[in-house]
Design a protein around this nucleic acid. Structure first.
Lengths: 113, 113
DNA sequence: ACAAAAGTCAACTAATAGTTGATATTAAAT
DNA sequence: ATTTAATATCAACTATTAGTTGACTTTTGT
C-alpha cells in the first residue's frame, strides 16, 4: 500500500521533471495549451492535474504517467524480493514469457479470492 | 509516442477493472468517498479523474495508476514495463500470490534456456 | 411476477481549473 | 551597479466541471 501523494507533492515532481527536461514554465505551458501561470499553479499544488493533463505532461516530458506517483527513491534501495523480481524479469530472453509474467502480476489481485 | 486517451476510454478501463475486482459502483464509491453516481460519471467519461481520484481508485482496485493509461503491456519499453511490474507486485495484497509470482519469474529464465 | 439491487439520467450547487493583468525575482550584459 | 530581458509568482475574476440529490430504468434472483 503506497502513500497517496497530495497535489503539492505531485506539483513538486512536475517542477523537478520539467527542469530536468530543460523547459521553462512558459515553454511547457504552450506545449500543453495552457498559460504559464497555470503550470505555476500545478507546481505549487494550487490546481490538480486531471487525466488529460497528466497524459499531456507525461508526453511533453517524455516520462510515464506513473512517474508522478511513485518515488524514484523507492526503487533505489529496492527490496530484495523486488530486486530479484526485476533481475529475473530482465533475464528472461523470451518476450512472450516476459509479457505473461507481467500480465500475471498486473492481474494477480483477482486470484486472491 | 503513445496515444492520449480521452475520459471515455479511461472511464471504460475503470469500469472493466472495477468489475474484475468484483465491486459494484456503490461499493467502490463508498471506498473512495463519493456517490455511486459519480463513479458512473467517471465510467462514461462525463467527469475526469484527477490525481487524487486516480490514486484512490488505484489503491482500492490494487492496480498501479499506469493501468489507466497504457493500452497493452506489449508496447511498453522495458524500463516502463519493469516499473509496472514492480508497481503491480507491490499492489498485490496477498503475500502468497506475491511469492508465487516471484518464484515464477525466477524460474522462467531457466525454463527458456 | 415481484422485490431488491445495481445502474442510468437530469437538474442543480459547490469547487476548482484556467484566465488576465500586475508585480516580483533572477540572470545577463553593458 | 544599473538596466534590461526572461522567468517566476501573486491576486482577482470567470468559465468549467466535479460532485450532489432525487427520480427513473434495468438487471438479477426467488
Amino acid at each position: 500500500m503506497s502513500k497517496i501523494l497530495n497535489s503539492k507533492e505531485i506539483g513538486w515532481r512536475l517542477r523537478v521533471m520539467r527542469q530536468q527536461a530543460g523547459f521553462t514554465q512558459e515553454k511547457l505551458a504552450e506545449q500543453i495549451g495552457v498559460t504559464s501561470q497555470q503550470i505555476q499553479k500545478y507546481e505549487c499544488g494550487a490546481s490538480k492535474l486531471n487525466s488529460d493533463r497528466l497524459q499531456q505532461l507525461s508526453q511533453a516530458l517524455s516520462i510515464p504517467v506513473q512517474s508522478f506517483f511513485t518515488d524514484s527513491d523507492d526503487y533505489l534501495p529496492l527490496a530484495i524480493a523486488e530486486k530479484m523480481l526485476v533481475d529475473s524479469y530482465r533475464a528472461i530472453p523470451n518476450k512472450e514469457v516476459r509479457d505473461s509474467i507481467l500480465k500475471l502480476a498486473t492481474h494477480a489481485t483477482k486470484m486472491t479470492e
